[in-house]
């Protein structure tokens, strides 16, 4: 299996984002880099034209580079961003990751990845997506191992590389409303760019004190980081081609190394999980979706909920 670094979901600002991608490209051995703003068009992230410059700087690293679209496109200005992103990707022959059907539409006929926000629940859908240019599909995050295995088994005549979201805060949903702005009693129109103060989002806790979700502007994520490090053998056996790690502000290089070591058999699943738990400050992970259970839960094997 290859390892991808998903698009950064947070608002780190142009410089930090660029530095991050350059570091990941030249100092880690990931295979694929997804770049592009997927959450909010208001953020001061890299424009399509700046991403094109960045992609040119990243190219000598030999990584596969993919341009990721917004997850929710709602107006003419955001449609314009879509078209510009697709044009930027086409300039260098890079693929486009569509995270909204608008992305599939503007990339139609060129090589694309159907991102985790495209609802790919069955092989018939994959067959259709293939016809419009999709070369790789990222499974929706909520699919269980058995659902994914079933889809891959039934993909007989279809050539398609399958990718799974394997590490990081789960992107659960998008809204027109900005929950970060709302938490500070601002409107989205006057958000004061509060997301910029929260490099890994803001916690949303239940009234009995469970760290449950992460508020990240118009996106809501899991609080716990999803982690499939201890089931990589199963992923490979199912026919998964790519595991996706989602960027976080701290320790990304080290996290990537643990994954690479695990995939090369240098670490056992148990040992790799222990290392990642350390890097996660001892906080629990989640993986329930993989076992067909509530996404928030974590199972060491199919039984013990944490």
């Amino acid at each position: 299996m290859r390892v991808s670094l998903g698009p950064c979901q947070f608002d780190w600002g142009k410089h930090a984002l660029k530095d991050f991608y350059l570091k990941m490209a030249f100092e880690t051995a990931v295979d694929i880099l997804y770049i592009g703003e997927i959450v909010c068009s208001k953020r001061q992230s890299l424009t399509p034209e700046e991403l094109l410059d960045l992609a040119r700087q990243l190219e000598p690293s030999g990584k596969e580079i993919v341009f990721s679209t917004l997850g929710l496109v709602m107006n003419a200005a955001e449609e314009d961003l879509l078209y510009r992103l697709a044009a930027a990707a086409a300039t260098g022959g890079w693929w486009l990751e569509a995270n909204d059907m608008g992305g599939i539409a503007v990339g139609e006929g060129r090589p694309m990845v159907a991102g985790p926000h495209i609802t790919t629940y069955n092989p018939e859908t994959i067959a259709f997506l293939r016809r419009v240019g999709v070369k790789r599909v990222v499974f929706p995050i909520e699919l269980s191992a058995s659902s994914m295995a079933q889809i891959i088994r039934r993909l007989t005549a279809e050539e398609m590389e399958m990718e799974v979201f394997a590490y990081g805060k789960l992107p659960l949903t998008f809204s027109a409303r900005c929950y970060t702005a709302r938490a500070f009693r601002y409107s989205k129109a006057n958000c004061q760019f509060k997301c910029g103060d929260h490099a890994d989002g803001m916690v949303m806790r239940t009234q009995d004190g469970t760290d449950f979700l992460t508020i990240n502007g118009t996106q809501t994520m899991s609080y716990r980081r999803y982690n499939l490090i201890d089931v990589t053998d199963q992923l490979a056996a199912m026919g998964i081609g790519v595991v996706r790690l989602s960027p976080q502000s701290q320790g990304m290089k080290e996290i990537i190394q643990v994954w690479l070591d695990r995939l090369q058999g240098l670490l056992s699943g148990v040992e790799a999980l222990r290392r990642l738990t350390e890097l996660n400050g001892g906080e629990p992970f989640c993986n329930g979706y993989f076992f067909g259970r509530p996404g928030h839960d974590f199972f060491v094997n199919d039984n013990d909920r944490i």
Partner: peptide
């Protein structure tokens, strides 16, 4: 519904049961 519908995983995140399925 205040989320992008058909692409909201909040309910399954808590229950394991997917509205989409």
């Amino acid at each position: 519904c205040v989320m992008a519908e058909g692409r909201c995983y909040l309910s399954s995140f808590a229950t394991g049961v997917s509205p989409n399925i």
